[in-house]
Amino acid sequence: MKINIKRGEVLCYEIQAKNQTLLEVLNEIKTTQDSSLAYSSGCRSGVCGSCAMRVNGREILACSYHVQDGDLVEPLNNAPVIRDLVVDMDKAYGFNAKAKAYLSADIDNILITHEEQKINELQSDCILCGSCYSACPVYAVNSEFLGPFALTRVWRYVSDKREQNPKEKIDNIQTNGVWDCTLCNACTLVCPQGISSKADIEKLRARSALVGYMDPNFASFGFSGGFDGSPIF
């Protein structure tokens, strides 16, 4: 079987593989054919988020994808390629801090019901693999967009009963945040954990509306005349 790996230029490797994961195949190439091949991996079981890359244009985890003859393997999009399949995730991860994706203050002994726990159970399954970040088309026009995983993380804390100042979190995601998303759903389709950042962004929009924010795109179509994007109370 042949697979093609984009390493600057596309190189073709002949491999013996049946029912193997892409990560196993990469390991085989690295240890027996070409040890200069660069990629990242860790847990091999889909929880560490190290081995996200693209196959035939779609984001996958190499440890969770079975190789097919003729596959084209490429690094993630929207992040600078360091070498071969390795990209620099520093800027992407930096959006977590910019989005203030954390509990704003310590809080003791809050009771949380099953239902309250379920609100962000799925969102806290995120492994920060960066697949959604790579698939998101908004970065083509706005490189400062907080982006899918960071906004999902904001929802994870905004919806947490322990968060004492959710409004501050909502205030913080009005610029380069929830309204910049086009709701195209590309992030949802590639998430290995089944998280829908698009849905989380919609929930954050609803929360934003509750505290008086409006969709600036909608507003600029003349609905509220001189609306300048600042909150309406």
């Binding site: 509990l103 310590d106 003791d108 309250e116 726990q117 806290s124 994870r156 804390y157 322990r162």
Partner: peptide, 8 residues
Amino acid sequence: SIGVPFSR
């Protein structure tokens, strides 16, 4: 207190 989403 820092927000770990423990099962309940």
